[in-house]
Amino acid sequence: MDFKSFRKKSPWILHYNTGSCNGCDIEILACLAPKYDIERFGALNRGNPKQSDILIVTGPVTKRAKERLLRLYLEMPEPKVVVAVGACACSGGVFRHMYNVENGVDKVIPVDVYVPGCAARPEAIIDGVIKALEILEKKGKEVELPRWCSVEVKPPVNRVKLLNRCLEELHGRRRG
């Protein structure tokens, strides 16, 4: 059976805060609330990575949140899209080059949609999610890995092993 068209109708959202100021987070909450109501598009905010299709990330990715972010990303099943919400998730924003941040989500995981603004407006976030849905429809089942990651994947994929190898490489880079 072809699940593609169904997937677009009920995307589940996973939201992770990697060091944002909460400004963008409350705007995402406002999206879920009655006035903007992202549920119109079937989107629900669920805190479970294994059931989610869209990962919304806010914040410039602090050193400690980096590993968690990678974990969440790799735990999500394919196809998946990543939306970076807010100026600081796109490039680091005001926090760029502070000593404990990574300057943006795309330094750690691949990003599909960038939503700028400080704070990003709810309209913009909804627009970003809709754009992400279009991308989601086109994506297949192949595993996408971060740019810095040199781990090779051959189907069938063992997710636990993949996760461990990626984390190892992350830690190796940290030491090296």
Partner: peptide, 15 residues
Amino acid sequence: VGYVHRGIEKACATK
């Protein structure tokens, strides 16, 4: 509580 430590105090005093 350290997941969102960014180093703002330092940046305020240097940058």
